[in-house]
Design a protein around this nucleic acid. Structure first.
Lengths: 159, 159
DNA sequence: CGCCATATAGTGTATATGCATTATTAAAGG
DNA sequence: CCTTTAATAATGCATATACACTATATGGCG
């Protein structure tokens, strides 16, 4: 019969990294969406295009694995990017899979978007402190791996 | 004309807390969704119901503010919970706003769900280390505030 | 050559998310 | 009492997310 009072619930809310992770992702995404809006680009679309640029020629499955997203989600998100002409997905289908790459239009858009991202990043680092940003990224990465040990490093810097 | 090579893109991907925050939120959400599936509950629904229990009698706007979610999103998510009979939203409309509360059915469901959450939490802490979990939560909170300085502490433990 | 096992892409459905906008309602002022 | 004003809830639209399932194509094997 549920012996939970408001304080018990508050404790759970405060202790759950899932609450925090979703709330933080929402906040940062709203922040970046506002930055990219003038370019007609969402934060996730920017992420995806950078991911494609980083692994030029990768298949959908490979990109999904490195980005930590389901292949069916990625399939639809890629379709959105293709419709806009920013991304090209072709090459042999089947075992080999489609090869993803940025179009010239896509690269041009990113050439505009990346300075915007740099400024947003600098502002974030200013508010948070440069060290704390590094710190936060490491904590996020550790959390993701703890939640899904099977997942790879989620686009870790390889060097 | 876009002098960006794969390595430049990888650097951006590795430096962007937005990428990481979304990927981490997805991973934790998948993890919790799997835990709650036998109960017919999603991770976000659990979060929401705990949030309602923590601020019993709050209005939609107040809950949206404390959870760091848009009121229109919350409106629809609450409707889902109402349809299932887990949450009740009534009381004077207008300036005062509807008052949100858990139904008996909702409290009973949470009585089943909270032990599941505790176990998931313990497993996460085991994989990550107890100190690192605290650390990660603090980093997430700091990031959310940096991204949206106007937002309150996002369901901080008040004491 | 044709069948089968496997991997890959895509659909159906449901939830989650937020901006722009509309509907509703309570309070304030004359 | 009526009108204006402001707050609140909800809707339209588009994107994002993932599980269950389907479609398709590839490569191996008899």
């Amino acid at each position: 019969m549920s012996g939970f009072d408001p304080h018990a619930f508050r404790t759970i809310a405060a202790e759950c990294p899932g609450f925090q992770a979703r709330a933080t992702a929402r906040a940062i995404t709203r922040y970046h969406n506002a930055c990219f809006r003038p370019l007609g680009l969402t934060a996730e679309q920017f992420s995806l295009m950078v991911g494609i640029g980083a692994t030029e020629g990768a298949t959908l499955v490979e990109l999904a694995l490195s980005a930590g997203v389901d292949t069916t989600t990625l399939s639809r998100n890629i379709q959105n990017l293709e419709k806009r002409g920013w991304v090209c997905a072709d090459g042999g289908r089947g075992r080999a899979g489609k090869r993803l790459s940025l179009t010239v239009l896509g690269r041009n858009l990113l050439a505009d978007a990346i300075p915007v991202w740099r400024q947003a990043q600098a502002e974030l680092a200013r508010r948070l402190g440069d060290g704390d940003l590094q710190w936060a990224r490491r904590a996020l990465s550790a959390l993701a791996i703890a939640a899904e040990p099977s997942s790879p490093g989620v686009l870790e810097d390889a060097e």
